[in-house]
């Protein structure tokens, strides 16, 4: 009899209720704290030990990103950054004091999530062909894209290297899973067990994506000097393309 009542309240609590309670109590906060501290430390270490890659920016230039892909990239980039920031606000709402500030953060999270989903669809389509994995991606993985040495050796990569491809697939496919689970959490309908499962998926995927997001930020801002400019002007210096995207054909 009591089991029947229990199922009528919120479903079988032992299935995901207990799992969610344990994860939220002891894992999610720590996981995000670890990601937000350890990864910047590792990247800082990389910057100090190996340092940024510098390429001559006054030489010939290669047209790399057309205007449409740049616009789409920046819409996705800005909305994604907002989502990471506001998502972290929810995770660390206790030190931030909670209340109206975090409520506002959640609204921004919802709005930018919607915009991101809209921008991610064309982004997925225009870059899909260049993002398909190819044989030399494995070679790239073995030498870690040449980022562990100071030498300028041509690394095997087409328009996008294996690292960018991982980021792309995680951000688009993972992004759609995040968008869907986020939609379910926003609508707050359906069996409670579904909500519990969705919040677990949302948290784990968000953790993986924020880690990749930090690495992507580091690569574009610091690891390759001046590479941010290529996403603004669309041009990359020929030397950089010859080394980092040696298989690229325009």
């Amino acid at each position: 009899m009591w089991l029947k009542f229990n199922n009528a309240f919120t479903g079988e609590w032992l299935q995901y209720g207990q799992l969610f309670t344990n994860l939220q109590e002891s894992l999610f906060g720590r996981l995000f704290l670890l990601i937000m501290t350890i990864i910047p430390c590792v990247l800082l270490l990389h910057y100090m030990v190996i340092g940024p890659k510098r390429f001559a920016h006054d030489g010939p230039q290669v047209y790399f990103f057309d205007l449409f892909s740049r616009i789409i990239h920046w819409i996705a980039a800005v909305t994604f950054s907002f989502m990471v920031l506001t998502g972290l606000m929810v995770i660390f709402s206790k030190p931030l004091g909670g209340g109206a500030l975090i409520m506002g953060g959640r609204s921004v999270h919802i709005a930018s999530g919607l915009l991101f989903t809209v921008a991610a669809i064309p982004m997925f389509i225009i870059w899909l062909k260049d993002m398909l994995p190819v044989g030399y991606d494995i070679k790239w993985m073995f030498i870690m894209g040449g980022y562990l040495s100071k030498e300028k050796m041509p690394v095997p990569a087409g328009k996008f290297n294996a690292g960018q491809k991982m980021w792309f697939w995680l951000a688009t496919l993972g992004g759609f899973v995040l968008a869907y689970s986020g939609y379910v959490l926003w609508s707050f309908q359906g069996p409670t067990d579904t909500l519990r499962l969705m919040v677990i998926i949302h948290n784990f995927l968000a953790a993986a994506l924020s880690a990749m997001f930090l690495v992507h930020l580091y690569m574009s801002l610091f690891a390759i000097a001046g590479s941010l400019g290529s996403m603004i002007s669309g041009y990359k210096p020929q030397e950089e393309v010859a080394i980092l995207h040696s298989r690229f054909k325009s």
Binding site: F20, T21, V90, R106, T192
Partner: peptide, 9 residues
């Protein structure tokens, strides 16, 4: 903050 976690727990 209305996150809804308490409802899920």
């Amino acid at each position: 903050i209305g996150c809804g976690y308490c409802f899920m727990a």
